[in-house]
Computed example of a mutant assay.
Amino acid sequence: MNSPSTVVAVTTSPLAKESPDVVRLTDVRRNFGKTAALDGVSLSVRKGEILGIIGRSGAGKSTLIRCLNGLERPDSGSVEIEGRDITGLSEQQLQPLRRKIGMIFQHFNLLSAKTVEENVALPLKIEGLPKAARLKRAAELLDLVGLSDKAKAYPSSLSGGQKQRVGIARALAGRPALLLSDEATSALDPETTHAILALLKDINRKLDLTILLITHEMEVVRTIADRVAVIDGGRIIEEGAVWSVFSDPQNDTTKSLLNTIRPRLPEHIAQRLSQTPVGEAVLSVDLAGPEANTPLFADLSAHLPNSFRLIHGGIDHIQEQPVARFFIGVTDPARLDPVLQFLKGRSARVEVLGYDARSL
Rank of each mutant, 00 (worst) to 15 (best):
R205V: 08
S284N: 08
G161P: 02
S247W: 07
L257V: 12
R170T: 08
V278A: 14
D202Q: 14
A187W: 12
R272E: 05
I261W: 10
A171N: 03
W243R: 12
E267W: 01
V230F: 11
D202W: 03
E238D: 01
R170A: 04
L283P: 07
R175E: 13
I224G: 04
V278I: 12
R235P: 04
Q275L: 11
T260I: 09
I224Y: 09
G279I: 09
V278E: 15
L147H: 00
D252H: 14
A177L: 04
L200W: 07
T193D: 00
V220P: 13
V282A: 00
A184T: 08
E217R: 10
V166W: 02
L180H: 06
P176F: 02
Q275E: 10
L179Y: 12
I211C: 11
A151I: 11
P266R: 05
D226Y: 14
N204Y: 13
A153Q: 15
T223C: 09
K255S: 09
I236G: 07
F246P: 07
I211H: 10
T223E: 14
P176G: 05
T254W: 02
D226A: 07
T192S: 07
E238L: 04
L283A: 08
P263G: 08
G233C: 11
L213N: 11
L212H: 03
P190S: 06
S159W: 00
I168D: 02
L258W: 03
G161I: 03
K163G: 05
A169Y: 00
V228K: 02
A169P: 01
H194D: 04
R175L: 08
T193G: 01
V166N: 03
D208V: 05
L197K: 06
K255I: 08
P263K: 10
G167E: 04
G160N: 09
V230Y: 08
S148G: 07
S284G: 05
A270F: 03
D232K: 14
Q164I: 11
K206H: 15
S148D: 02
V278W: 09
I168C: 01
P266Q: 08
L257Y: 12
L283D: 05
F246D: 02
R222I: 13
L209A: 07
Q271I: 14
H194K: 10
L147S: 00
P277T: 07
R165T: 03
T192D: 02
L212I: 11
L265Y: 11
E191V: 14
S256V: 15
S156Q: 10
K255F: 05
D182R: 11
L209C: 07
M218H: 06
I237Y: 00
Q162F: 00
A153N: 15
L273D: 01
A270L: 13
A169N: 01
R205I: 10
L273E: 02
V221W: 00
Q275I: 12
D149I: 13
K201W: 00
V278M: 12
H268Y: 14
E191F: 14
L212K: 03
L197N: 08
P277K: 04
K152R: 15
R205W: 04
F246T: 07
I236A: 06
S247C: 06
I269R: 10
Q164D: 11
Q164E: 06
L178Q: 03
W243N: 13
H268P: 11
S256D: 15
S157V: 15
L257G: 09
S186Y: 14
N259G: 09
L188Q: 10
I214D: 02
